[in-house]
């Protein structure tokens, strides 16, 4: 004879038992990963001494506010330009041929050296001197390069739709 009943007496696995089970699971995991955990503790200690943990804690606890401020700051016209310019520059660098750039930079470097020397000596170059330097093969090469550069840049400016 068993009437329908609805009362259920839950075995209150008392809190301590439950805790003990959870803890032993954790302890096992720690024991299995001893080396990793010890290393991690060392890193944490270093971070703590350097004050990084404290900073991180502050940041995380205020992440919503900080995040909003950061995004607001980022979302300004000046910042837009920085990001856009940054992206464009990255794009430019991506498209450049490193060998060519290396040659140009090499030239630029030597040019700079000479230029620096000439400012030191403070010699004034007269009209004649300028004309004469045109005959110098090095100057010729340089000018040639610059004219070619101007030509290419003109092409680029005239044809915006390069994809």
């Amino acid at each position: 004879m068993a009437k329908a009943i609805t009362q259920i007496e839950k075995k209150q696995k008392n809190l301590q038992e439950e805790r003990a089970e959870d803890l032993s699971a954790i302890v096992n995991q720690i024991a299995d990963n001893r080396e990793v955990i010890q290393d991690t503790l060392v890193i944490l200690q270093e971070l703590h001494e350097a004050g990084m943990i404290d900073m991180l804690k502050g940041f995380l606890r205020t992440r919503e506010k900080v995040g909003t401020i950061a995004i607001e700051q980022l979302n300004q016209p000046g910042m837009h330009n920085i990001i856009k310019n940054g992206m464009n520059t990255i794009g430019l660098l991506a498209n450049m041929n490193p060998d060519q750039l290396k040659a140009i930079f090499g030239g630029l470097n030597q040019g700079l050296e000479k230029a620096a020397k000439s400012t030191e000596s403070q010699e004034q170059l007269g009209m004649w001197g300028l004309m004469k330097s045109m005959k110098n093969p090095s100057v010729k090469t340089s000018l040639n390069t610059m004219v070619s550069f101007l030509e290419g840049m003109g092409d680029g400016l005239n044809n915006k739709e390069i994809h």
Binding site: A2, K3, I8, K11
Partner: peptide, 11 residues
């Protein structure tokens, strides 16, 4: 659950 009297007990 096991019935004991008019209650079920976890087992």
């Amino acid at each position: 659950l096991i019935r004991k009297g008019d209650k079920f007990y976890e087992a």
